[in-house]
Amino acid sequence: MRNLFLGLAAIGLVFLALFSGPHSFSGADQQAVALISEISPDYRPWAWPLWRPPSPEVESFLFALQAAVGSGFLCYYLGLGRGRTLARKDHDPPN
């Protein structure tokens, strides 16, 4: 029950933001780049990414892949743990 509330609070904050008004929701990293050019208009970046995702679709695929791999590892362990706990309970039944 407590975990349900924690999950709802986490998701709730995100949705609160989504409906907090008409915003552009641009990335903070890009805003920082804009701020750099505002503070130091003469600064020229001297290195460029070796490779860029060719389209926003490919980029979102790679981000989704990162999240999927991560949640795979996490949830494998959680499932394993749950199974072990249940097996232990079967082994020595409560008095």
Partner: peptide, 14 residues
């Protein structure tokens, strides 16, 4: 991995 892949909207509009 999961959390750093999620670019979440914030109430500040970014």
């Amino acid at each position: 991995f999961v959390l750093s892949a999620l670019k979440l909207p914030s109430v500040t509009g970014s």
